[in-house]
């Protein structure tokens, strides 16, 4: 029964989370998509535990938490996969064209530079980078984050190109 309560809480999360994302967009809330996911997860986990305590005589917290965590993380995984994937952006742009074909040059010369500029805007909006005349420079917050990322990459033996390694 505790598993059922955890699963019900996960379903509530799957309903609340998109509602929060839509409300944030339409009402212009200055809250990031990931923060909204965390808020939805905390709220629905709390609701699930409360429900479990009220309706299950021998409520097993970890049974409920395990299935809730699994379903929510699966959701976040799918969310992250489609959120800002460059490869999927390219695929969607080709599929959405009426003739379902795109010149390679158009992708290289127009779409990817547009994506590049979009990500730069994200960095500027996030206060990690600032424009100086026609150039860009990292803010102290940006340098701090880059330092942390660099240390983590070195510790985990991860390269700093972000390119896929097809030799693996």
């Amino acid at each position: 029964m505790s598993f059922v309560v955890g699963f019900l809480a996960a379903i509530t999360f799957a309903l609340l989370s998109p509602a929060l994302q839509l409300m944030a967009r339409t009402r212009g809330w200055p809250v990031g998509a990931v923060t909204l996911l965390a808020i939805a997860a905390a709220l629905t986990h709390g609701l699930g535990v409360t429900l479990g305590i009220l309706v299950v005589p021998q409520f097993q917290y970890w049974d409920a938490a395990s299935i809730f965590g699994f379903c929510v993380m699966g959701y976040v995984f799918a969310f992250g996969a489609v959120y800002k994937s460059v490869s999927l952006e390219i695929l969607l742009s080709v599929v959405d064209r009426p003739e379902r074909r795109a010149p390679l040059s158009d992708i290289v010369e127009r779409q990817v530079p547009d994506l590049f500029q979009g990500r730069i805007r994200n960095l500027v909006d996030g206060g990690l980078v600032e424009p100086v005349n026609s150039r860009f420079v990292a803010t102290p917050a940006g340098r701090k984050m880059a330092g942390r990322v660099g240390r983590l990459r070195r510790a985990f033996g991860i390269g700093d190109t972000s390119l896929y390694d097809f030799s693996e």
């Binding site: 960095l123 980078v129 420079v137 990292a138 940006g142 985990f156 390269g159 190109t161 972000s162 390119l163």
Partner: peptide, 14 residues
């Protein structure tokens, strides 16, 4: 960390 486009843009600039 490994394949993040935006994060790598930031580290490249720094």
């Amino acid at each position: 960390l490994a394949w993040g486009f935006t994060l790598t843009l930031l580290t490249a600039l720094v």
